[in-house]
């Protein structure tokens, strides 16, 4: 039995028919073909699947697609204004070499943006490290991710995003 579901993803109205058990991340990846959001674990720890749902940072492996009915979802694919103009957080990750294999990156970037906003664009290293509790990276040792987030916070403020 399938259930119809409709939501806005990165500003576009989308709809589909899903099983009740279909996760939001499965809907994004398998139904919409938006494979930027990744799945790195099965216990909601790694954070590779983080997206923004109605302004809140959500692990999309822990939300059913039907729970996202009527919401506005933003994924990693929806952040950059254009190929040339990335979101300040994406730019900071590039500038600071905050990614290697790229697999955790979408979730890291989405979590980091949410973190900066929740802390009103003011962060220190200890806060960033504590706030990254829900995002695992095996490549970077976090050093450059922390640097990137600290650099992005003022950049996001001045860009008004």
């Amino acid at each position: 039995m399938t259930i119809p579901v409709a939501m806005t993803v990165n500003g576009k109205s989308v709809s589909g028919k899903v099983e009740a058990r279909t996760l939001l991340v499965q809907f994004l990846r398998e139904h919409l073909g938006m494979t930027g959001t990744h799945v790195g674990c099965d216990t909601s720890q790694c954070g590779a699947c983080v997206v923004d749902v109605d302004g809140k940072s959500v692990k999309s492996c822990t939300m059913l697609a039907v729970q996202a009915e009527g919401t506005k979802v933003i994924t990693i694919e929806g952040l950059a204004e254009s190929a040339e103009k990335l979101h300040p957080m994406q730019e900071a990750f590039r500038e600071n070499h905050a990614l290697q294999c790229g697999f955790c990156t979408p979730g890291m970037v989405m979590s980091a943006i949410d973190m900066v906003k929740r802390h009103n664009y003011q962060l220190d290293e200890a806060t960033v490290r504590r706030e990254l509790e829900g995002n695992l990276c095996r490549c970077t040792g976090y050093h450059n991710i922390v640097k990137a987030i600290l650099a992005a916070a003022p950049a996001m403020k001045s860009a008004g995003v």
Binding site: R29, M34, T35, G36, T37, H38, V39, T75, I76, E77, L79, A80, A83, L86, Q90, F93, R94, L99, G102, F103, T105, P106, V109
Partner: peptide
């Protein structure tokens, strides 16, 4: 970085 930062990398899955 461009493709990894914009969700356009291409992994096996």
């Amino acid at each position: 970085d461009q493709r990894f930062l914009t969700g356009t990398g291409r992994y096996v899955d």
